[in-house]
Simulated scan of single mutants.
Amino acid sequence: MKKPVYKKWWFWVIIVIVISGIGNMGKDKEENKNASDTGTKQSTPVDATQKSTPEKKIETPVAVSDPKKEAADKKMKQQLVINFENTFFSVENSGATVFNKYKSDMDSLGKGKTDVLTVYGSTKDAKDTALSLMSQYNELEVPNALPSEVKDLLEQSKRHLATAYYSKSEAFNSVLSYLDEQKPSYMNDFEENIKLADQDTMQGVLKLMQAKEKVGLKITEKKK
Rank of each mutant, 00 (worst) to 15 (best):
K7W: 10
F11S: 12
W12P: 06
V13L: 15
V16T: 15
V18D: 10
I19H: 08
S20H: 10
S20L: 14
I22R: 01
G23H: 06
M25W: 03
G26P: 00
G26M: 04
K29F: 07
K33H: 07
K33S: 07
K33M: 06
S36G: 02
D37P: 00
T44N: 01
D47E: 09
A48K: 09
T49K: 15
T49N: 15
P54W: 04
E55L: 13
K56R: 13
K57W: 12
K57G: 08
I58Y: 09
I58P: 04
E59P: 08
P61D: 10
V62I: 13
V62Y: 10
K68C: 05
K74D: 08
M76G: 00
I82T: 07
F84R: 02
F84D: 01
T87R: 07
T87V: 03
S90P: 00
V91T: 05
V91K: 02
E92K: 04
S94N: 07
G95M: 11
A96V: 13
K103D: 12
K103Y: 11
M106W: 13
D107F: 10
S108E: 11
S108A: 15
L109V: 11
G110L: 14
G112V: 10
K113M: 14
V116I: 15
V119W: 05
Y120G: 00
K124C: 02
D125W: 02
A126Q: 08
A126D: 06
K127G: 03
D128C: 07
D128S: 13
T129S: 13
L131V: 13
Y137T: 01
Y137S: 02
Y137R: 00
E139R: 03
E141S: 12
P143H: 04
N144C: 04
L146H: 03
L146S: 05
P147M: 06
S148D: 12
E149I: 13
E149V: 14
E155D: 14
L161R: 09
L161H: 04
A162Q: 04
Y165A: 02
Y166N: 12
S167T: 07
K168Y: 15
K168Q: 14
S169M: 09
E170K: 13
S174P: 01
L176P: 01
S177Y: 06
L179Y: 08
L179W: 06
D180E: 15
P184E: 03
S185Y: 09
D189E: 10
F190D: 05
N193W: 03
Q199P: 02
Q199I: 11
T201K: 10
T201P: 02
V205K: 07
L206Y: 05
L206A: 10
K207T: 00
K207G: 00
L208H: 00
L208V: 01
M209Y: 02
E213P: 01
K214M: 14
K218Q: 08
K218N: 11
I219V: 14
K224E: 15
